[in-house]
Design a protein around this nucleic acid. Structure first.
Lengths: 105, 105
DNA sequence: CAAATATGCAACCATATGGTTGCATATTTG
DNA sequence: CAAATATGCAACCATATGGTTGCATATTTG
């Protein structure tokens, strides 16, 4: 995943409303747009925009079904985000390790 | 960590320039502002603003030293972000598991 | 088929964001 | 101490963002 794609992923997760949407999807049953848009404190159309941001970042997929549209979590992107952070931490630890060896000499 | 704090963390990571700053810090030696601001394609003052965003999200700490200011990665927040994603994925997997059992009945 | 439901699309708006330039200040260095 | 270096701060600007309202359209349902 390119740096730009990772940035877009984190950006998508960097908003309380979108974070709540993602959390709801991970917990509950498969939700359609309408259901998912409730109780977010914003209008349906506003919620739709946030869902679209998640679609663009590939955190979520849309599956039209009749007059409804089901929204489904896609964990692939999430995992890559987690991996990115893990790699950062690993590099950092490695660096600390090297620094320790250096000061012990 | 509150939902709002997690959102702020991801928001801080959701920008290519800031992502590059964080990556540089994880790799190289402890950097001062000036060094860190180079080769980002923006001005020193612009870079400073981005670094400040990372400070606010607690991804990074500042340590003044004489006329310089050292910038240091703080992996605590990063880890919490990673944990948050891991929890999402775990819930999702659990849900899939439950769904599988249901359809197998 | 008419009414109800689920959604989409576009225009609009206030504020946040990512950047700039210009200048001031504190600390080192020769 | 004078010059060089590292940084800070404020004002400004164009664009992105997060939200709204209003209306159109497609699919179900009674």
């Amino acid at each position: 995943m390119s740096q730009a794609a990772v940035a877009q992923l984190f950006k998508a997760l960097g908003d309380p409303v979108r974070l709540q949407i993602v959390q709801r999807l991970s917990q509950g049953a498969a939700l359609c747009m309408g259901e998912l848009s409730k109780d977010l404190g914003i209008s349906r159309q506003g919620a739709r925009k946030q869902i679209q941001a998640l679609v663009s970042a590939k955190v979520v997929q849309l599956h039209p079904a009749g007059r409804e549209v089901k929204v489904q979590l896609d964990t692939a992107a999430l995992q890559q985000g987690r991996d990115f952070i893990a790699a950062l931490e690993a590099q950092w630890d490695q660096r600390l390790q090297a620094l320790k060896q250096f000061t012990e000499q």
